[in-house]
Write a protein that binds this DNA or RNA. Structure first.
Lengths: 142, 142
DNA sequence: CCATATTCTACAGTGACTGTAGATTTGGAG
DNA sequence: CTCCAAATCTACAGTCACTGTAGAATATGG
């Protein structure tokens, strides 16, 4: 029987995060000791590891909820899981493309800055005038 | 004199976002009509455009606050602005490296999925067992 | 003058946690 | 068995950068 702290250490999760997952229904309500502390088994450890790994791959908790549901029903078609992963892949590719545009622009800003005073700072100048940008970077939160 | 909606349209910002920027002190309190509606001038338009552009480049509002402060004092050294931009560049590069690792892993997952049922779905299998990953992807929120 | 569009304030909600306060429980040493 | 420090408990507020909502007031064109 594993205490919540052990589970946390083994999966690289904060204790509060585990309780949060329980609260939103991603993790099941575990058994309790007489004193009211949570005790977990191996199944819960595996489930939490699954969740954390999916988070590391950038899946949202909603997507993870679906993946866990699929994983709980081995007779269901794999197609859905494949679609979720495919969607995630396309999102990652999109974010990379956007970041690439940002990188180019930032590099240019930094390299062109000659180090005088802010009156003719290249960094600030580019920020002031969008038309100086070579690449398009229209979305926020890329 | 520009109404808040005009400012919003011209800069691609939501009206509430402009009020939010005012609330946190990023935008100044503008003049008001007799009826209490906000009216802006060109200076505010420029300032908002600066903010939005910096947001598109991924700067946090805190970094933008510093950049605006530097921009307001043309006699200060450019060095600080350069450092902020450099920091942002390194962050973007880090995020790109992480996303690259994710992309590799997701691609592998999706391509190896043969389309049976979830019992032997490659996507779910990889999520279940971290050791199957070829690349390291340790940080969440990359 | 009136209808419609815009703006106002104030507050709650988002996602995915993280942090805090104050009380209780647990596990091991003596 | 007693004591103590570490871990855990609940409940709630805070983070970031917005976004959405309700209900009232204001502005504008016909």
């Amino acid at each position: 029987m594993l205490a919540i702290g052990t589970l946390a250490r083994r999966t690289g999760t904060k204790v509060q995060t585990i309780r949060y997952y329980e609260q939103i229904g991603l993790m099941p309500e575990p058994g309790r000791t007489a004193g009211g502390q949570r005790r977990y088994g191996e199944a819960e450890l595996d489930r939490l590891a699954f969740i954390r790994h999916a988070r590391q791959l950038g899946f949202t908790l909603e997507a993870i909820r679906e993946l866990l549901d699929l994983s709980d029903h081995p007779e269901k078609s794999c197609q859905e899981a494949d679609q979720i992963a495919g969607r995630q892949l396309r999102q990652v590719e999109l974010r990379m493309a956007r970041l690439e545009a940002l990188r180019t622009e930032l590099e240019r800003m930094v390299h062109e800055c000659s180090g005088g005073n802010t009156a003719d700072c290249r960094v600030l100048e580019v920020l002031r005038d969008h038309s100086e940008c070579l690449t398009a970077h229209d979305e926020i939160g890329a």
